[in-house]
């Protein structure tokens, strides 16, 4: 069928042929689009309110894990600071006796379960069995491990792979009075600086010992002794360090260990986990002391 456009033009009212008509139609279309978008935005916003509020709920798990990790470092009495660029670990704390430490961890677990978790949204539980076995493990990235064995007043720092120690600074503050010092050191390569203070004595010494053979320095008191071990000292691992304090002498320490090579020292994790769950998420979080 052939359409005669000329006759169609004549049949249409005259204003249809005006340029203004096209302009008006475009303006109306534009304004309608504006209304359409405004309506849609309002509708989507109201329907997504639940998603907005529920999207923030997993924050609870992160917040809770951060809170518990910080609390546990207080309960254990340890302070940790890692400088990943200089490959340096600084740890400080007090080697308390096992009964006090175990009771504190159990009290904390009970406080969380009975008093704190009921206040938080969702369902939470904490697994601290790995800390109540007499030993608390701290992992520095994937390369170094610190064991705080509170049942035997011992703190040990050891690499998990071939990372090597280049120097150790050890500051010790002990109660009582030192009687004598017994050294059994071998080799060289690992620099050890010791600063010791007790109620009656103080000394500083620097030694270069082997990182692959056992060297010991024994602090002898009248009733017992504390032993510092370096090199192949802990779990048959080279480049390790042990401070085993006398149970009769309250001993606080600051360890600064500098590693060579490229060990990954972050994040710093405590051997424990916290489980959080709610309608919107299930999370098992590590207890991270430093990121």
């Amino acid at each position: 069928m052939k359409i005669n456009f000329n006759s169609l033009k004549q049949a249409l009212p005259s204003f249809f042929s005006k340029k203004g008509f096209l302009f008006t139609v475009s303006a109306v279309l534009f304004a309608s689009t504006l209304i359409f978008f405004a309506m849609n935005f309002a509708q989507i916003n109201s329907s997504s309110e639940y998603e907005i509020s529920s999207s923030a709920r997993p924050l609870n798990a992160i917040y809770l894990a951060d809170n518990v990790a910080f609390n546990l470092s207080k309960v254990l009495g340890t302070s940790i600071d890692v400088n990943d660029s200089t490959k340096q670990i600084i740890m400080s704390g007090n080697l308390a006796n096992s009964t006090v430490q175990l009771t504190a961890i159990q009290d904390y677990s009970s406080f969380l379960t009975n008093n704190y978790f009921p206040l938080t949204s969702g369902t939470e539980s904490i697994n601290l069995t790995s800390l109540t076995d007499g030993k608390a493990e701290v992992y520095f990235g994937s390369d170094v491990q610190a064991d705080y064995n509170y049942s035997s007043n011992l703190i040990a720092l050891s690499p998990l792979n071939s990372s090597s120690l280049s120097s150790i600074d050890l500051n010790i503050r002990a109660s009582g009075a030192l009687s004598s010092l017994v050294e059994s050191t071998t080799g060289s390569g690992l620099t050890v600086n010791i600063n010791y203070v007790d109620d009656a004595n103080s000394f500083s010494l620097t030694r270069s010992v082997s990182a692959t053979a056992l060297s010991t320095i024994t602090l002898v008191y009248a009733d017992s002794s504390s032993v510092l071990s370096f090199g192949r000292a802990y779990s048959d691992r080279n480049n390790s360090l042990i401070l085993q304090a006398s149970p009769d002498h309250n001993t606080s320490y600051i360890i600064r260990a500098i590693y060579s090579g490229l060990p990954v020292l972050l994040p710093v994790k405590l051997n424990g986990s916290i489980t959080s769950s709610s309608k919107d998420y299930n999370a098992i979080s590590n207890l991270i002391l430093q990121k």
Binding site: I35, A38, M39, F41, S46, S48, I52, S53
Partner: peptide
């Protein structure tokens, strides 16, 4: 048209975002 759009936009609630 603009007034109608503003009416709809005024109904948009930011309470959820503010609460987060």
């Amino acid at each position: 048209f603009v007034l109608i759009s503003f009416y709809y936009l005024s109904n948009v609630s930011l309470d959820s975002w503010n609460a987060v």
